[in-house]
């Protein structure tokens, strides 16, 4: 079996250079590749285009890269929780392309499935449709949206093996499997790295063929954005 293990996040991202396009998995702060984001901040690469559903918060996630002015352009569906992001956007330092969440996910899927484009009704008749080809199928209009073309996809999984097979946990799965399929080079950081044979092939979410580098992550903070609870008395 091919061994895809690298020592750590620094090694995994060592050849990422200024101006490249990165996909980063996660929804909000859930399931984000914390180790690789820290390594990117340390490395200081800049002028990056980041494809990610959200842009983190001021002091966590992609927000850390924004703070260091490493991001030239964000392609996201929702970017609401970040004051520094807002400042850079309003001052014109940061370019933002907002696209529907399902379109974002499916453009990743298309890349991983080897399909150049998809047709979706999301955004028909809105500003999202401007400049895009529209096709009518069975009486309904659809926009043609292209598969993403990203230099690197960086994802976070729960478990992975040395051959790059990945298993995600709970809703931290979100964009991670589709982005894992979509990078020219895919980097996976995992909470638990195991030897081949330790994962049941029936339980693999992302086959290792899509993953080029994998490493055992560490010190996961897993910050919660909205802590909502009920008391035992409420039942």
């Amino acid at each position: 079996m091919i061994n895809k293990v690298v020592a750590n996040a620094d090694e995994a991202i060592a050849d990422i250079t200024d101006g490249q396009t990165l996909m980063l998995g996660g929804f909000g702060l859930c399931g984000i590749p914390e180790n690789c984001i820290s390594a990117l901040v340390k490395k200081g690469v800049k002028d990056l285009t980041c494809i990610s559903n959200n842009a983190g918060v001021d002091d966590f996630g992609i927000g850390l890269m924004l703070k260091q002015r490493q991001v030239k352009k964000m392609i996201s569906s929702y970017v609401g929780e970040n004051a520094e992001f807002e400042r850079q956007l309003l001052s014109g330092e940061l370019e933002v392309e907002l696209i529907p969440q399902g379109t974002l996910a499916t453009r990743c899927l298309a890349a991983g499935y080897g399909m150049p484009a998809i047709f979706t009704p999301a955004g028909v008749g809105t500003e999202v449709a401007e400049g895009k080809e529209t096709r009518n199928f069975n009486g309904k209009d659809y926009l043609m949206e292209y598969a993403f073309d990203a230099d690197f996809a960086i994802v976070k999984a729960w478990k992975g093996d040395t051959a790059g097979n990945l298993i995600f946990r709970s809703t931290s799965r979100n964009f991670n499997p589709v982005m894992a399929m979509a990078g020219k080079i895919t980097i996976a950081e995992v909470e638990e790295l195991v030897e081949v044979g330790q994962l049941d092939p029936d339980h693999i979410h992302t086959p290792g063929v899509y993953v080029h580098r994998i490493f055992q992550g560490k010190d996961y903070e897993k910050r919660i954005e909205q802590r909502t609870v009920r008391s035992k008395e409420q039942g």
């Binding site: 529907p100 379109t103 028909v124 999202v128």
Partner: peptide, 14 residues
């Protein structure tokens, strides 16, 4: 400040 459409456009279109 525009935060984004999230999944709203997908939901209403489909």
């Amino acid at each position: 400040m525009v935060k984004g459409m999230g999944g709203a456009m997908d939901l209403v279109a489909s």
